[in-house]
């Protein structure tokens, strides 16, 4: 336990600015065809990526993904952004994800994180939780929760990225 507190101190001792930008770790998740995918390999030809953690039972999550879906075609045309939706439904509900996504008409890349391993490694506490990655795969913005209109704010961030502006 004592050694641990040293590691903790050491970690805190690093000035935060010296840390690298957060990236997505090499955690394995599954796509809807059952294939194992390494989350660190997500890419979009140098364009931004939105990663959204959601579940079929989470109403604000579904509301957010539906709101984005209404404008998604325009977003892709204008900025080339890609949305990756990661479901944290456990084995009770994970088989529902594929028909659910299909009936919602979502065009997103959808993955399953059945035991929340990727969720935990990205410090996602409650869902929905949305990340924005720049073209280099660095997490430059994140947001927890959803209220109508948040999607417009998210898109402003995407546009900033595309225009080379910095994001607070």
């Amino acid at each position: 336990m004592k050694n641990l507190s040293y590691i903790l101190l050491l970690s805190l001792g690093f000035s935060f600015s010296s840390f690298a930008q957060k990236k997505v770790p090499a955690i394995k998740i599954k796509d809807l065809k059952g294939n194992v995918v390494d989350a660190s390999t997500f890419e979009n030809d140098g364009k931004p990526i939105i990663i959204s953690f959601w579940a079929t039972w989470c109403k604000p999550c579904v509301r957010e993904l539906n709101a984005i879906n209404d404008q998604y075609a325009d977003w892709v045309d204008e900025t080339g952004v890609k949305l990756i939706a990661i479901s944290i439904d456990d084995s009770r509900l994970s088989s529902k994800v594929r028909p659910f996504v299909s009936s919602q008409g979502w065009e997103y890349d959808v993955y399953l994180d059945e035991n929340s391993e990727l969720r935990r490694s990205l410090n996602v506490n409650n869902i929905p939780h949305t990340f924005l990655l720049n073209g280099k795969g660095e997490i430059v913005w994140e947001h927890n929760g959803y209220f109508p209109g948040d999607e417009d704010h998210l898109y402003e961030m995407v546009e900033k990225l595309i225009n080379g502006e910095t994001i607070e």
Binding site: G13, F14, S15, S18, F19, A20, K23
Partner: peptide, 27 residues
């Protein structure tokens, strides 16, 4: 010890741009 660690980490930070990523959450 703390001062030592802090100075060590500062030195580390100046010499090496990337000392890894630290992240977390709190509730």
């Amino acid at each position: 010890n703390l001062i030592f660690l802090l100075s060590l980490s500062q030195a580390f930070a100046q010499n090496n741009e990337s000392v890894g990523q630290l992240s977390g959450n709190f509730q």
